[in-house]
Amino acid sequence: MECIVHFDVHHKDGIKPLRGLIFLQEDRKIPTERDLLQMFEDMGYKLKMDDRDKMIFVPTESSSDYDWIRVRELDTGEKTYKEDSELRSLLSNLMPQDFRPI
């Protein structure tokens, strides 16, 4: 199965939207962090995960000409993952802040 990864590369002078391709095994629906890092490495980006919730990656080399990369969308052809920041904010406000056992 294929997964098209839509991401933004944040340079000092602006944002460049790009896409990458990951081939997944049939039993997996979305790529793992390792899959994403390998795809980026194949494209010449040496990264590490900085924020898992927002899917933000930062360069491991200080000489890179970009600040960070953010994955916007994972398109597998079946179901598309797209971050909905308004929904995330709403849910975080509705969830209890103090988790206690019942």
Rank of each mutant, 00 (worst) to 15 (best):
R19G: 00
D51I: 07
S62D: 14
D50K: 14
N93G: 10
D8K: 09
H10F: 13
K54M: 09
Q25W: 06
F7S: 04
I102W: 05
V9P: 02
F23D: 04
D75K: 01
E86T: 06
L90Q: 06
I69C: 06
G14W: 13
R72Y: 06
M49H: 07
I56Q: 10
D65M: 12
D98S: 08
D67Y: 09
T60E: 14
L36G: 05
D84L: 03
F57S: 03
M95Y: 13
D35N: 15
M49E: 13
K29L: 14
I56D: 02
R88K: 09
P101Y: 11
R28S: 11
I22H: 03
L37S: 03
S92A: 11
R100A: 09
E78P: 00
E78F: 01
E61Q: 08
G20P: 03
K82Q: 14
V71Y: 06
R28E: 11
E26V: 03
M95S: 14
S63I: 07
Q38K: 02
F57E: 05
R28V: 07
E33V: 15
I22N: 03
K79W: 06
Q38N: 08
T60F: 03
G44M: 12
D35F: 00
E86N: 05
M1W: 02
Q25S: 13
S62W: 02
F40D: 01
